[in-house]
Design a protein around this nucleic acid. Structure first.
Lengths: 398, 398
DNA sequence: GTATTTTGTTTAGCGTCGGCACAAAGTCAG
DNA sequence: CTGACTTTGTGCCGACGCTAAACAAAATAC
């Protein structure tokens, strides 16, 4: 009677990522019969996850007009949270990456991981109480490499946390304490992950990475460079969660010494501090280095010193990206943070450097694109939290 | 009636890789019921791919003794071939990596791709006539990067072929001309692939890589360094087959210039020529550089000059491997060619360098192992040819 | 107004697998 | 030797998830 259990997850993912506006394209995308696609859509609607419009959409073309599929409003949400150097953000996120509610965003120095994670979860619990929405899971992004499968933060550099803080365990405990219900009525087990990884996941699902099968994302925030790889729609974080540490590729053999023991690493040669220094500016303490760099690029790009500095950083970045292209052979590259701003400032130069310095650059260069979600690891944390539901909606909803 | 169609492929793969000696462990590995595992085994036996021993194996433990599953002798084979600088090899390979028949191995300079591929296929056709075995597919390894999905050899450096030679198309045409039957009675479409990639596949299925989920292989033959990555049992060759070009990581900033435009690349700093030069030896023309290097390591490692040279190369190699560990986070590394010999000469030094120079070396170092199949790309070509059968035995056998 | 095209639904049926009872073939304890 | 136990293998049935095919619906095309 109830058809389409195995295809339920893929179907939900298609609607979730906006790739299945109607049952007709759902049929085509899933490669199943119309009967199955119809049954799957009916099942997802019965679960309260999507809605099928009663009236057909505006026709225009020949044939019977199709009914629009959309994310159910008022449907379940997940708790997404992000911890950064100055505090945290928390939000409820529905399917389709819809922000349902956002907490004010506390600005405090997150000295003790346990305290701030408790606060994050409490903020989320407040949002859930206010909105009365059903919560199916929770995700947390931290600015640190996260070891798998333990879920410990190895280098929470900007947070003055102890290395190896058991972030996932703390998060799970806090969720249990706050009584946040998760899949199957049980208290949710939270997902946690490296923020660049999660931001890349967000770009893949809802941003510039949609449709890519081998997506490489590189970004620099305040200090250091982060990378992430999304293969066939799943984050590739290596055998223990520590892959894509791209910051220590050598891009300037005679360059600055790096804490890794080498010199001229991508990490220290292409971050905002390197750019500001190259442009001859002394960074001020008032706003972030990233903000100062962006402002400089926007307002003073005509200044030869600024332009030369930008080109220098672009050349180094291009060298690093070329190295990554040689190793990973992605079909798309998305840049965030300062790298995105540099790409915007002079797209052709960066693409030329990458094509020139990668081995197979001449036989087909990789598209290099700016991120479209501003590398939003909050959305990414939500994506990670939705993953179990996308994998098996029935099991996740009980 | 006939159960176990979906589990047929995974079951065959388990027997093929020697991980399912009996139906009982097949049950456990597949995560199905005994009924299903039994039906699957019966089906595979009916297809002539495996045999179930009539007599139970020696018991020893409590309970009903189990019957041994093994690869059917006299069963179907695939044609595997390898082209190298001095000629080619061709063989018939059964399931389980069993060499069934080997062609004498022509030693001629492969000037024209079309001619040598025709010769390879002719040799294979001869083997098939002699043995009368059924052929289910064919695979060819070439010492060059192979672009996907076109199947063209981009840098057949040692072969004096034109860059971009359509290897797969030539191979497929030659197979059709020779009338080599493939899956479903139709003429086989051949697989072709980069030889290091295929050798890595062989190591994963039948060698030191068995059971690894994130396997990195690095090897140097005569000149240059090749890499390959096997993720969850499938070769990862990137979006267009050009991934894992690991030869141009910088490992010696002040080093030799490389044809890629940089200097101090892994390619020119850790290959046999670099080793021989560092040891103060003038390479002779009689045997290959790889052979000379191996001999030197084996017979004169006591000589301080040789030992120092080896340590120098090991240090550079360790730096390159550490860079790859930072990016790929494999759970195992397998070395071949000279790199394998260097590992054998001083395992601890290489492991220490990698642990020290990789970011997370202290929190768990990667096992670095020598290859056990001598990086046999012939077996790897066979694995690639078997893949369709392993994916769907029924479809492949008609 | 009828034909055509495309979308959606209903019904029947089939293949694959799990569940369960049962049978088979060994070890173990006495 | 005998019976209890443990593990392996098989037969039967039903549930589930899909396809196939016929039918129905709603638009455009002429």
């Amino acid at each position: 009677m109830e058809r389409g259990r195995g295809a339920l997850g893929p179907a939900l993912e298609l609607v979730h990522t906006g790739r299945a506006p109607t049952r007709a394209v759902l049929t085509a995308e899933l490669g199943v019969t119309r009967a199955t696609a119809g049954a799957v859509a009916a099942e997802l609607e019965a679960l309260g996850l999507i809605t099928v419009d009663a009236r057909p959409a505006a026709a225009g073309s020949q044939g019977r007009p199709s009914h629009r599929l959309s994310i159910a409003s008022g449907g379940p949400v997940v708790l997404a949270a992000q911890i950064h150097a100055d505090g945290f953000r928390a939000a409820l996120v529905g399917l389709g990456g819809n922000m349902v509610a956002t907490a004010p965003g506390c600005m405090t120095v997150p000295a003790d991981p346990s305290h701030i994670i408790d606060a994050v979860v409490e903020a989320g619990a407040g949002l859930l109480r206010e909105t009365g929405r059903r919560c199916l899971g929770a995700g947390l992004a931290v600015p640190s490499a996260v070891a798998e499968p333990e879920g410990t933060a190895l280098n929470p550099l900007h947070l003055s946390w102890p290395a190896g803080a058991p972030v996932r365990e703390l998060f799970t405990q806090a969720l249990a304490k706050a009584g946040i219900p998760g899949p199957g009525g049980v208290t949710a087990t939270g997902s946690t992950g490296n923020d660049v990884n999660l931001a890349a996941l967000a770009e893949h699902r809802h941003g510039a990475g949609r449709g890519s099968r081998h997506l490489l994302c590189v970004a620099t925030g305040h200090r250091g460079v982060g990378g992430a790889l999304v293969l066939d729609g799943r984050l590739h974080s290596g055998s223990s969660g520590l892959a894509l540490e791209v910051g220590h590729l050598t891009v300037n053999p005679a360059g600055l010494p790096c804490h890794c023991g080498s010199r001229g690493c991508l990490d220290v040669e292409t971050d905002p501090l390197a750019f500001l220094t190259a442009a001859g500016r002394t960074p001020g303490p008032e706003v972030s280095l990233l903000q100062q760099s962006r402002d400089l690029l926007r307002t003073e790009y005509a200044d030869p010193a600024v332009r030369t500095a930008a080109e220098l950083i672009v050349d180094r970045l291009g060298l690093g990206l070329a190295g990554l292209v040689n190793i990973l052979n992605p079909d798309r590259i998305i840049l965030g943070g300062l790298h995105r701003a540099l790409l915007d400032a002079d797209p052709e130069r960066l693409r030329a450097v990458v094509a020139d310095r990668s081995l197979w650059g001449r036989s087909g260069s990789v598209p290099i694109l700016p991120c479209t979600l501003d590398f939003n690891s909050l959305i990414g944390a939500a994506e990670a939290a939705w993953q179990p539901v996308l994998d098996d909606p029935l099991a996740a909803l009980g």
